[in-house]
Design a protein around this nucleic acid. Structure first.
Length: 315
DNA sequence: AACTCGGGGTC
DNA sequence: GACCCAGAGTT
């Protein structure tokens, strides 16, 4: 990881926000590109949100980028320094218990335990808990850290941030969700869940609701029509006009005063909790946006690729 | 406490 | 396909 051994609080914060629900390998190229564009908190605070999303596009959970930008704007005005304690960091937009604890422990050495998916699983197995509450896990992780790093109790002489990273790495490399490598685990001897590790913790129920969507691509001599999305879903990014459910196509046509559009094809795209089947329609209309100059979600990139692959047939 | 929010790797 | 990822905000 390029941020191992990093001491700049801004870089530590950035890496931790990038890692929210995101695998390390996926986050690394974004980390490099983001720092190349916005090397400091001040630089980020002075940038336009669209420029930030331009770098973030394709990674998902775009509220992370919006919150990080908002945080940078607020702190730049207030002197450009991140607060140094867990409780202060927790007040910042986009920082929950995980990220606040990560920055506090790794950047400032505060003795507070991070609880991510890895730690949750390690603790659940360690204690043989099937359905622990978030507070139960956090308390246990804090207690473990206090005991292990207790200098007066013969504890480890370890920087709190390093302990946190070690526990997460144990979960990411040994105490993994499926087929955990208990034989290679340094603490299997003390683990209460090792005889049936896959029972801990119980898996969450996830249901992906099928959703029918219609997208309308307006193509003109100068480009295509894009609109700025607002709200929580893909907010701040640009995309093709879309409507869901019954009457989607007529509503779309009505918005642009069109009589008809031609079906180009279907794009399938899965979100965590929704499975989209997007019928892509095309029509000729004056339009002048260049999609390569705008931040687009993966879904809109797929639609764009479909249109471009059919370009000869359409024009 | 339960939903919502992206996208992608892995089994 | 199902699961889950170095989670946070809203309801």
């Amino acid at each position: 990881m390029p941020w191992r051994g990093e001491t700049d609080p801004y870089r530590i914060l950035l890496s931790e926000v990038l890692l929210q629900q995101t695998r390390v390998d996926q986050a690394i190229p974004y980390y490099r590109r983001f720092l190349a564009e916005f090397p400091t908190l001040e630089a980020l605070g002075q940038a336009d949100l669209e420029a930030v999303l331009e770098v973030w596009q394709g990674l998902g959970y775009y509220a992370r980028a919006r919150n990080l930008h908002k945080l940078a704007q607020a702190l730049s005005r207030a002197g450009g320094q991140l607060p140094r304690t867990y409780h202060e960091l927790l007040q910042l937009p986009g920082l929950g218990p995980y990220t606040a604890a990560a920055v506090a422990s790794m950047a400032f050495g505060e003795r507070v335990a991070v609880v991510d998916g890895n730690v949750r699983r390690v603790i659940a197995r360690w204690m043989a808990w099937q359905n622990p509450s978030p507070k139960q896990v956090q308390d246990e992780a804090d207690e473990l850290m206090a005991v292990v790093l207790s200098p007066t109790g013969g504890g480890l002489e370890v920087f709190p941030g390093d302990w946190n990273q070690a526990l997460m790495e144990l979960g990411a490399t040994v105490c993994i969700p499926k087929n955990p490598r208990c034989g290679g685990c340094p603490v299997a001897q003390f683990c209460q869940g090792k005889t049936s590790p896959e029972r801990y913790p119980a898996a969450k129920q996830r249901l992906q609701k099928p959703v029918e969507v219609v997208a309308l691509v307006l193509v003109g001599p100068q480009g295509v029509h894009l609109e700025l999305r607002e709200g929580r879903i893909l907010g701040g990014l640009w995309g093709f006009p879309m409507e869901e459910g019954a009457g989607a196509l007529p509503r779309l046509l009505g918005r642009f005063g069109l009589e008809a559009a031609e079906l180009v094809g279907t794009v399938r795209h899965a979100f965590t909790h929704r499975k989209l089947r997007v019928q892509v329609y095309w029509a000729n209309k004056d339009a002048r946006e260049q999609p390569e100059n705008r931040p687009l979600s993966r879904l809109d990139r797929k639609i764009l690729e479909l249109i471009q692959s059919q370009r000869n047939a359409l024009l």
